[in-house]
Design a protein around this nucleic acid. Sequence first.
DNA 1: ATGCCTCAGCTCCTGAGA
Length: 254
Amino acid sequence: MQLATWNVNSLNVRLPQVLDWLATHPVDVLALQELKLADDKFPAQAFTDIGYQAQWFGQKTYNGVALLSKAPATDVMKNIPGFDDEQSRVLCATIAGVRVIGAYFPNGQEPGSDKFAYKMRWLDALREWVRAELAQHPQLVLMGDYNITFDDLDVWDPQGLRETIHCTTEERNHLQALIALGLTDAVRLFPQPEKNYSWWDYREFAFRRKRGLRIDHILISEALKARATACAVDVAPRKNERPSDHAPVVLSIA
DNA sequence: ATGCCTCAGCTCCTGAGA
């Protein structure tokens, strides 16, 4: 079984690339972030036509998440229960016996800003909800665009970007609090290439110059860790014409 | 401090992303 996550930065623009990628990488589950389209604009038929069911939670202009799957999705939940939020960021479902949470974490803009405070509140709420989900569902994966780096290994210029957004101690502490629930960073379970990033700025030829961040993650429970056989970033779609600024991350489990 | 790039929209500029 394979599960993947991909921030597509507008599903409207990227739909052909998502369909192409699924044709060559027929994963069982694909979590999408930053759809940037309203629910009534979601291209459900395009996915049905290639054998995928879709759950979606859209929003006009910003945010928006989806779960594509070959098997049916049950017990679907949208956003974090009890956390009042106008932004569409979380979609959760049970698929083929795995509790799958796809999430688009807030960007946070800049430490000290209102958006950073929202990011911290959102992370608090997410952690407590995931704790409860984990208690009910031992086979759990939390994947998506976290907008947080784990450490210097995830950053092309650790000194220059020290304590800037995605790299602050406060954000990283939140990420470690998720790990402390019993989750594991699946990518780090396996050998990886140098400069293993999942996002590169569109500007200044950042991708070609290998100036990126690893901010898209797949965290897995102990039960799934025991089944994991591979996990890696697929940088190929970042080389497409009109690419997303993010690349997919793919997890394989036995 | 800002551009550098990309996308959506009350679209020819602005806000947001990261």
